[in-house]
Design a protein around this nucleic acid. Structure first.
Lengths: 215, 215
DNA sequence: AATCTACCGTAGCGATCGTTCTAGTTGTAG
DNA sequence: CTACAACTAGAACGATCGCTACGGTAGATT
C-alpha cells in the first residue's frame, strides 16, 4: 500500500532541485540581468549540472519566466492588503501603502527583476517580460478597485490618473531604495506618498468629505 | 595652405566614426542591457569593424561608460531649467517639472540606460554605473538648491525627504512611460507631481506663505 | 619623396555561450 | 527480479563572446 502519494510522481528530490535552480537563477538574474544570467553560472551556484537545469526547464527563456512567476507568487504572499476596516479613506489608503512598502522590503525580487526586464526592448521579447507586464496589470486593476471604492465620486479618467501616479510613485520609491539604499526611511516615504495620492484624488472629486486634515 | 585646421589632428572621419559607434552602442544597450551589448552587434549596426571600436575605446566597459557620459550630456543640453522668473514658488516648481518632463521625452537614453545599469548589482561594478550614479548625484544636488531657495524655511531633513520624493516620482513616471507608453499624458503627470511635491513641502514648513491654492 | 600618424579591414585567438547527447543512478511498481 | 520513470553526471557540439595582432591606406608633416 503506497498510501500517502496520490499521484505517480515520486522519487525524492525533484522539486527541491527545481527550487535550488530557481533560487540560484533569481540571485544571478538580479545581479546581471537577462543576458548576464548564464546557465553555467546558475549551474555553479546551485551545484547541479547544466543538464539538470535543462531537464527541469525547456530553455533559458523558460527558466527566466519561471523565475519571474515564482518571485511574483512570493511577493503576492508577502502583501497582505488590509481588509475592509472601518477607518477613514485616508487611513485605509495609508494602510495599503504601508502593506505594499513592507512587501517590497520583504520580497523585492519580483519588482527588481521585472523592472530590469521591462526596461529592455529587444526585438524578440523574453517570456519573462510578458509575464511581468501581465501580472503587473493585474496589480494595477486591484489598486484601481481600491481607489474606486474609496472615492466613488471620481470619474474614470481621474481614477486612471490617480492610479498611474500611485504606481509610478511606488516604482520610483522602490528604485530609490534599490539604488541608494535606505537613505531615507522607506516606509515613511510610502506613507507620505499615500497621503499625497489621497489629497490629489480629493482635489479631483470635491464632493467627497474630507476627514481630519490637521491633527 | 592648409588654413582652416588649427590643431594637428586631421585625417577625415575619426570623430564621426566615434559618434557612429556611440550611436549604435546606445541603441543596442537600450535594447539589450549591459551584457546583451556585444561588440559584434555594435560593429554590425555602425558598419565599422570591431577593431575600429577597439581603436576608439579601450574595452567594452569603456565604451559603455562613454555611452552613458554622452547620453548624459545630451540630456543636460535638453533640460533648460527656467531662469529666475518672478512667478510664485508653485509656478516655478511646476516650470521645473515641465522642463524635466520635456527633456526626458526628448533625450530618454540617459535615464533609461542609467536605470538599467543601476538596477544590476554585479560583483564588479561597470564604470558606466558609477558614472551614472555620480552625475545623478549632481542632478540631485541641483534640485536640492532649487528647493532650498524656493522654501527657505524647510529644515535639512525635510529638504532631503522632499527631494527624494520628487526624484523618485520623476523616475517612476519615466518608467511608466518607458514601459507602457503614453497611457496618460506624461507632461500632465509631471505637473501633478510638481504640485503635490510643493504641497507636501508647504505642509512641512508652515511658516511659508501659501499662494493661491484654489483658482 | 619620404615619413609619420590616424584609422580601417581581416583573420583569428582562447573562453564561454546555450544546448544536446548519452550513460549512469535510484526510488517505485508490477 | 525486471521494468520503468525521475533525475543526475559529464562530455561535447557549433556559435558567439571580448579582444588582439597585423598589414593596409590615406592625409599631414618634413
Amino acid at each position: 500500500m503506497t498510501g500517502t502519494q496520490l499521484t505517480r510522481r515520486k522519487r525524492a528530490n525533484g522539486v527541491e532541485s527545481r527550487q535550488r535552480i530557481l533560487d540560484a537563477a533569481v540571485q544571478i538574474a538580479s545581479e546581471r540581468g537577462y543576458d548576464g544570467t548564464s546557465i553555467a553560472a546558475v549551474s555553479a551556484r546551485c551545484g547541479l549540472p547544466a543538464s539538470s537545469i535543462y531537464w527541469h526547464f525547456r530553455d533559458k527563456d523558460d527558466l527566466l519566466a519561471a523565475v519571474i512567476e515564482r518571485s511574483f507568487e512570493t511577493w503576492l504572499a508577502a502583501v497582505d492588503l488590509p481588509g475592509e476596516e472601518t477607518g477613514t479613506p485616508l487611513q485605509r489608503i495609508v494602510a495599503v501603502g504601508a502593506a505594499v512598502a513592507a512587501s517590497l522590503v520583504d520580497a523585492p525580487d519580483f519588482l527588481r527583476l521585472g523592472l530590469m526586464l521591462a526596461l529592455e526592448r529587444r526585438p524578440e521579447e523574453p517570456r519573462g517580460r510578458a509575464v511581468f507586464l501581465q501580472v503587473r496589470e493585474v496589480a494595477r486593476q486591484k489598486f484601481t478597485e481600491v481607489i474606486e471604492t474609496l472615492l466613488p465620486d471620481l470619474d474614470p479618467a481621474n481614477v486612471r490618473t490617480v492610479v498611474t501616479y500611485a504606481l509610478a510613485g511606488a516604482d520610483g520609491l522602490f528604485l530609490q531604495r534599490e539604488i541608494h539604499g535606505d537613505v531615507v526611511d522607506f516606509t515613511a516615504m510610502f506613507e507620505l506618498h499615500a497621503r499625497l495620492v489621497y489629497e490629489a484624488a480629493l482635489q479631483m472629486a470635491p464632493g467627497t468629505p474630507q476627514d481630519q486634515a490637521q491633527p
